[in-house]
């Protein structure tokens, strides 16, 4: 089996105020996997994604998306930040937020037109939120807001999707709906990388997993490496508590 490498991370070190949060990470993510990044709080999961996307500058290391630097491959990548990272009281509608996903392909100054609007409406329909297109975003529930974020990523029509805790604070129905869409993306040959908290659902949702705790503990197929040994190395002896939470 010889698949292409979608994301290649070499010797990545990231520090905040000279304190390393990620230490010498090597990571190869094959094309077409649905991968969970797991690890305790403060393990650097979000930081890893943000460094790959160039939002945070690493102090060492290199990152390649299909063998080229991220800056040249922006159009291949979609990003869903943590829901809590934005101000949901911002004066805008669900449709408008989804349309922001088209801004990257538009580039500077050009404005979204009918084509972008149509794509955004389709994405809203895919996540079951078409009926809420004109709703002010603060009037949406947590699960609905997460669906809007997902639609915004879908409209980017990327090859690789990065998602930072898409299941945080959503109800069971939304969680099912989101994971179904992610699985569809994988079926279409896309690569999906998800920062994930709920260890229990890892084997059910994902086929690939990366254990992270400042250093990379392990990465590979869930069926091969999702075991007590790696969980203990990542979470310490209390990992069972983490699972049962």
């Amino acid at each position: 089996m010889d698949t292409a490498i979608a994301v290649q991370v070499d010797d990545l070190t990231v520090a905040y105020n000279y304190k390393p949060v990620l230490w010498d990470i090597d990571l190869s993510i094959p094309e077409g996997v649905l991968m969970a990044i797991v690890g305790p709080n403060g393990a650097g999961k979000s930081t890893l994604i943000k460094s790959i996307l160039g939002i945070i500058k690493p102090i060492a290391g290199s990152i390649q998306i299909y063998k080229k630097p991220y800056k040249k491959q922006r159009s291949l990548v979609a990003y869903v930040p943590q829901k809590g990272s934005v101000d949901w009281d911002f004066p805008t509608t669900a449709l408008d937020v989804v349309m922001m996903g088209t801004y990257g392909s538009l580039g500077w100054i050009k404005r979204p037109g009918q084509k972008e609007k149509k794509a955004s409406l389709e994405a809203l329909e895919k996540v079951g939120m078409l009926g809420f297109k004109n709703r002010q975003i603060s009037q949406l529930s947590g699960g609905q807001q997460q669906r809007i974020f997902l639609a915004r990523a879908l409209v980017q029509n990327a090859s690789i999707y990065f998602m930072d805790e898409p299941f945080q604070g959503v109800d069971a129905t939304t969680e099912k709906a989101i994971i179904n869409i992610l699985k569809e993306l994988r079926k279409a040959g896309k690569t999906v990388i998800v920062v994930h908290h709920d260890l229990q659902t890892v084997p059910e949702y994902f086929d690939w997993v990366t254990f992270l705790n400042v250093k990379k503990i392990a990465t590979g197929p869930v069926k091969d490496i999702f075991n007590d040994d790696n969980l203990t190395k990542t979470y310490g002896i209390n990992y069972k508590v983490a699972i049962n939470k």
């Binding site: 996307l53 939002i55 990003y79 101000d87 911002f90 922001m100 801004y103 990257g104």
Partner: peptide
């Protein structure tokens, strides 16, 4: 609204 997204999009 979302500086993280703006940065990832290259804006």
């Amino acid at each position: 609204f979302d500086a993280g997204l703006a940065s990832a999009l290259g804006l």
